[in-house]
């Protein structure tokens, strides 16, 4: 998870558990606003997002709001690339994130777990 890398570079300890939980800003500046914008965009809650975007122009800034949504849009595509091609974690990444994946519940998104849960 790249958020951990950013924290290490900045000397900050972000709460990675917030990424997979239903609430929390992870300790990131303006994290609550970023979270709300992201969730509305990915859940296709467009009316809500219209409202949130207007508020965020004031609290976060217009350029920052657009840039946050720019990142969200990109990852809405690239996550589908990963999940459509069954790409595995890189060896080095898998090794470096073992404990994080277990602690945050990301392991339940593995292809093997999904096949066991959903295939008939």
């Amino acid at each position: 998870m790249r958020l951990r890398g950013s924290g290490e570079q900045e000397g900050r300890d972000y709460d990675l558990g917030a990424v997979t939980s239903d609430s929390g800003d992870a300790g990131v500046d303006q994290g609550a606003t970023l979270r709300a914008l992201t969730e509305a965009a990915i859940r296709s809650e467009w009316d809500l997002l219209d409202s949130l975007r207007g508020d965020a122009f004031t609290t976060l800034g217009e350029q920052q709001t657009v840039d946050a949504l720019t990142v969200a849009a990109a990852f809405n595509g690239i996550t589908r690339v990963a999940d459509s091609t069954g790409i595995p974690l890189d060896d080095a990444m898998a090794e470096a994130t073992t404990s994080i994946r277990a602690a945050t519940g990301i392991d339940q998104y593995s292809y093997a777990e999904k096949s066991a849960r959903y295939d008939l």
Binding site: L3, D29, L37, T38, Q64, A68, T79
Partner: peptide, 24 residues
Amino acid sequence: PLSISQAQAEFVAARVSALNECFY
């Protein structure tokens, strides 16, 4: 090269990954 910090971008990216239940 955006107006948000790397950490803010990573938080958004990670949250999208979680919402889409992406393992990678």
